[in-house]
C-alpha cells in the first residue's frame, strides 16, 4: 500500500525546488575571489620579472601590498632569499584578518565549500560540524587578529601620505598617491566595519546607559553598526582597490606607464 514519498522533498547535494538562477551569485563570488586573491598571491612573491618592481626607487611610491616594509631590511641581509618577500608582512595581519572575516566566511563557505551554495539548496558533504570542530573552530581567533589588523590602518595611511613627498623634490600631488589614499581609506573602512570591532567597541556591553564611558562607547558603536551593515561593500571595494592600486603602481614602477603628477622624478 504505502509508496515512497515522491521526489519533491528530496535531500542531497544541490537538491532544491528553487526556479530562479540561484547559482549566479556563488559563481560570481567564486570567480571574483579567485581572480583577486589569485593575483595578490602572485603579487606577494613577485619581486622579479617585467613588473617585478613594486616601488619607485628613491620614493615612497610603494604598492600597499608591501606596506610596511619592515621585512625589506632583513631581506637585504639575506641575499637572494626570494622566499622571504617583504610582502610576507601581510601574512601576520591582513591575510588572516580577511580569511577569518565574517563576511568572507559567508562568501567562501557558499561559493567554495558549497555549504550551502545558496539558501534552500542542498549542501555538499555528508556530515557537517561547521565551526564547532577543528579546523574551522579556529575562526574564533578573528577578533584577536582584528587587533593586529588595526595596526595596519595607520601604517597604510602613513605610507599613503608619505607618497606625496618625494625626497629631493618635496611635497606634490600625483594620481598614484591619490589612489594610495583611497586604498588606505577603503582598508580603514573595511577594518572599522568589522563585526569583531563592533563587539569590542560596545556590542559586548549589556548596559549602554550605565556610565559615561559606556555611553561614549555606545555612540561609537552606533557608527560602527552603521558601517557594519555595509561590511560586504567595504570587503569587496577594499579588495578590488588593493588589486587595482597594486597593478597600477607596478606598471608605473616598471615604467610601462607614467603617473600624472607634479614631480619630475617619475
Amino acid at each position: 500500500m504505502a509508496q515512497a514519498v515522491a521526489s519533491p522533498l528530496q535531500s542531497g547535494f544541490l537538491a532544491t525546488l528553487r526556479q530562479d538562477r540561484w547559482w549566479v551569485e556563488p559563481a560570481l563570488v567564486f570567480g571574483s575571489l579567485s581572480l583577486f586573491f589569485g593575483w595578490l598571491t602572485i603579487s606577494i612573491f613577485m619581486d622579479f620579472g617585467p613588473i617585478g618592481h613594486y616601488k619607485v626607487e628613491g620614493t615612497h611610491f610603494l604598492t600597499p601590498v608591501y606596506e610596511p616594509t619592515w621585512l625589506s631590511a632583513i631581506n637585504a641581509d639575506w641575499e637572494g632569499a626570494w622566499y622571504l618577500s617583504p610582502a610576507f608582512i601581510v601574512l601576520v595581519g591582513p591575510v588572516p584578518f580577511r580569511a577569518t572575516c565574517y563576511y568572507y566566511r559567508r562568501a567562501y563557505y557558499r561559493s567554495y565549500f558549497l555549504s550551502p551554495p545558496a539558501c534552500a539548496v542542498g549542501d555538499l558533504g555528508k556530515s557537517y560540524k561547521g565551526e564547532s570542530a577543528f579546523p574551522l573552530i579556529m575562526q574564533n581567533v578573528h577578533r584577536y587578529i582584528m587587533y593586529v589588523a588595526l595596526v595596519f590602518v595607520p601604517l597604510l595611511w602613513i605610507g599613503a601620505i608619505r607618497s606625496f613627498h618625494v625626497p629631493g623634490e618635496g611635497w606634490g600631488f600625483g594620481v598614484g598617491s591619490a589612489l594610495l589614499i583611497l586604498n588606505a581609506f577603503l582598508l580603514m573602512m573595511y577594518t572599522f566595519s568589522c563585526h569583531s570591532l563592533r563587539h569590542f567597541i560596545g556590542g559586548g556591553l549589556n548596559c549602554f546607559s550605565c556610565t559615561a564611558f559606556t555611553r561614549a562607547r555606545k555612540r561609537v558603536w552606533d557608527y560602527v553598526s552603521i558601517w557594519n551593515e555595509s561590511h560586504r561593500f567595504w570587503a569587496w571595494s577594499s579588495l578590488l582597490g588593493i588589486v587595482l592600486v597594486d597593478v597600477y603602481i607596478r606598471l608605473v614602477a616598471n615604467e610601462h606607464i607614467t603617473d600624472p603628477n607634479t614631480w619630475s622624478h617619475f
Binding site: 565574517y102 550551502p116 539558501c119 534552500a120 561547521g130 565551526e131 564547532s132
Partner: peptide, 15 residues
Amino acid sequence: AGVGYCNITKCCTEV
C-alpha cells in the same frame, strides 16, 4: 545550543 555549527551563511537572515 551549538552556536559553533553556524557558518554564518546568512540564509536565516534572508528568509
